[in-house]
């Protein structure tokens, strides 16, 4: 008998994550999004190197200057270089995105897993809380929380996270309910796995892809909400180079110096777009789980 050599050739073992990557990289738009995110992250890291001026450096002679070779994006009412401020603003934006997602995902995923796996009255309590959180428009609820906690970037982030966990809880619960029905969970029980272990090693890894998709959508929405709060004067406080705050100040000079608000606006838009492209690509790539 002649042994088939077909299955012997590939030595590399292919995890489902690797297959997800294979599908993801076929999506041009998603790669563009990924490029944008990488650029923004690099800008945030190397802002001191890239920025020609310190973000707080005032050139009182050059107030409200239009874009020029000296000031690429022009200057504001204190003669601060907007290009440098926009670059530094990426730090606040990413910080908001990461902190908010870290808090809301931790709370939401934990509660979602518990809710979906155990069911019963625990499930009832968690899901009714989610319903309450969801019954308010996100911005209004965040606004209310900030008003209680007091204005400031940190409080704004806490407020957004306290609103954002609900969507994680709901998605993770739904996913858990369906993964729980898979036979491998029953098989895990049949070999004597504990509930905690089943949640951590069997269910969580299989809902992780949905969580990642949610995160990539959640980061830009957190950035927008934070910018909105800053715009309303409840988030980042002057002299922070926060994009939302900058737009709020720029409003007063809209006719006099339009570039003042355009560039931070573009920065927000690009960041949001980048994450959304990646989110769409990821969403298409994680399901279905098979290639071909």
């Amino acid at each position: 008998m002649v042994e088939s050599n077909v299955n012997m050739k590939k030595v590399r073992s292919e995890s489902t994550w690797y297959l997800t990557w294979l599908r993801f990289k076929r999506n041009k738009l998603a790669l563009v999004g990924l490029g944008i995110i990488i650029v923004i992250v690099l800008i945030a890291i190397f802002a001191p190197v890239l920025a020609p001026y310190s973000p707080d450096e005032q050139h009182l002679k050059d107030r409200l200057q239009p874009p020029s070779s000296k000031y690429l994006f022009g200057t504001d009412e204190f003669g601060r270089d907007l290009f440098s401020r926009v670059l530094y603003g990426s730090r606040t934006a990413l910080l908001v995105g990461i902190v908010v997602v870290a808090i809301s995902a931790t709370i939401g995923v934990t509660l979602g897993l518990i809710s979906g796996y155990f069911g019963g009255w625990v499930d009832e309590i968690i899901m009714r809380t989610v319903d309450i959180v969801w019954s308010f428009p996100a911005l209004i609820l965040a606004l209310a929380i900030v008003v209680i906690l007091g204005p400031g970037l940190i409080n704004a982030m806490i407020a957004i996270a306290l609103v954002g966990w609900a969507s994680y809880a709901r998605v993770v619960r739904a996913e858990t309910l369906s993964v729980k029905e898979e036979l491998f969970v029953e098989a895990a029980r049949s070999i004597g796995e504990s509930d905690l272990r089943i949640l951590v090693s069997y269910i969580f890894p299989n809902v992780l892809s949905s969580i990642l998709v949610l995160i990539t959508y959640n980061i830009p929405s957190a950035i927008i909400t934070a910018s909105s709060l800053s715009f309303l004067g409840l988030g980042a406080q002057p002299p922070s180079p926060d994009w939302g705050l900058t737009i709020a100040t720029a409003r007063r000079y809209l006719t006099l110096a339009p570039w003042y608000s355009i560039f931070p606006g573009l920065a927000i838009m690009l960041t949001v777009l980048g994450f959304n492209f990646v989110g769409d690509g990821l969403r298409d790539a994680v399901q279905p789980e098979r290639v071909g």
Binding site: M1, V2, E3, S4, V6, N7, K9
Partner: peptide
């Protein structure tokens, strides 16, 4: 014995030959 071949790289000739006792 064996399994159905991968049709990306099917065996040459008779596709059953890798599993055939008479091949």
């Amino acid at each position: 014995l064996g399994r159905v071949p991968n049709l990306l790289t099917p065996p040459p000739g008779c596709r059953f030959h890798p599993r055939c006792p008479f091949a």
